[in-house]
Design a protein around this nucleic acid. Sequence first.
DNA 1: AACTCGTGGGC
DNA 2: TGCCCAAGAGT
Length: 350
Amino acid sequence: MDASSDTAIAAMLLDWYDAHARTLPWRAAPGTPAPDPYRVWLSEVMLQQTTVAAVKDYFAAFTTRWPTVKALAAAADEEVMAAWAGLGYYARARNLLACAREVARLGRFPDTEEGLRALPGLGAYTAAAVAAIAFGRRAVVVDANVERVVSRLFAIEEPLPGSRPAIRAKADTITPQRRAGDFAQAMMDLGATVCTSRSPRCLLCPISGPCEARRMGDPARLPVKAAKKAKAVRQGRAFWIERDEAEVWLVRRPGSGMLGGMRALPDDGWAARIDGSGEGPLTGPWESAGKVGHVFTHFALELNLAVYLGDGFEGLEDGEWWPLDRLNEAGLPTLFAKAARLALAEKEDA
DNA sequence: AACTCGTGGGC
DNA sequence: TGCCCAAGAGT
C-alpha cells in the first residue's frame, strides 16, 4: 500500500472519529483543546489491561480526591494504595505515586514521548499515548486494539507477539502527522466497538474498503496468537483473627510481588511457594471457615480461610487491628475482600 | 525473551 | 461454566 492510500486510511478514521467518538470522562471531544495531561496520564495508567467500564469509577474517585498531579504527589502511600484496591495490577499504583512525585519535582509533565518514557510506569504505549493525546505530538500508539486492527487491515499472519515489530511498522505508516492523538483514540474506539476480537462489525467499519482480512473473508481469524499454557491451581491459607468482635488483624504485604504494598489478611505465603506452608501468625486453635477461589493472571488460587478461636494474641507483629465496621475502607484487594466476606458470613450463620 | 502481575465482563 | 480478553510495564 503506497503512501497516499495510507494517508487516506487516517483521513477515513478521523472522519469516523469526528462522528462517532465515545464520550469518556478523561477525553476531550474531537477537535477541542487537549485535556489536562494529568487526567490523560492517570486514565492511561488505569486503562492498562483494564476495561473502560472498570476504570470509570476509579478515575472519578481519584480526580475528585486528588485534582492535580501535585495533590497526588503529596498523598500518603497507603491512601493511594487503598484507593486503587480492586483495580488490580498494583505495581501500577506504586509507579503512579513514584511518577506523580517525579513530575511534581520536575514542575510539570515532560511534553515529549522520550521524556515521558523515562517516567515510572510509562512504557512504550503510555508514553506515546500521552505525548499524542495530551501534547499533540506525532507518536505511534500501539495497544491491543491497534494490534488487532492493524493485523486485520494488513492481513498479518505471523502470530503475536512475534508480529509486534511488523505491526508497529505498519501502524507507523498510517499514523498521520497531525491529529495523532485523535487518530490513536480513533483506532482504540474502532477496536473496542467495531473491529472487536470475536465478531467484527465490518459493515460499520470506516476502513473495511482497504482491509485485507475483510477481503479475505474471515477477519476474526486475525490476529493469530501463540497458544497459552495451562493455568496451575495453587492452594493457600489465610487467617481471620478477630478481637472483641470489633476488630480484625490486618497486615501490609511486601512492596513487590503479588498484591505488593496492599493491606491484606495474614496468610501462609502461598504467593511465594507452590503451596503455602499452612502456618499462621500465631498458634491456633483455628477453625475452618471454608474457602474462596480466585483466578490470577498465571495461576488460580484456592484460599482456605482459618478463623482464630483463642483469646490471646501473643505472636502477632507487623500488623494492625482494623475496625470491622470500617473494613470496606481497608483497601483489601479482591482476593482478601472475598475472604473477609466469607468470614463475616460465617459469623452471621453462627 | 519470557515471566510476572488482577480483575470483571462477555460469550 | 470455562476461557478469552482488556488503552502493558517491569524485570
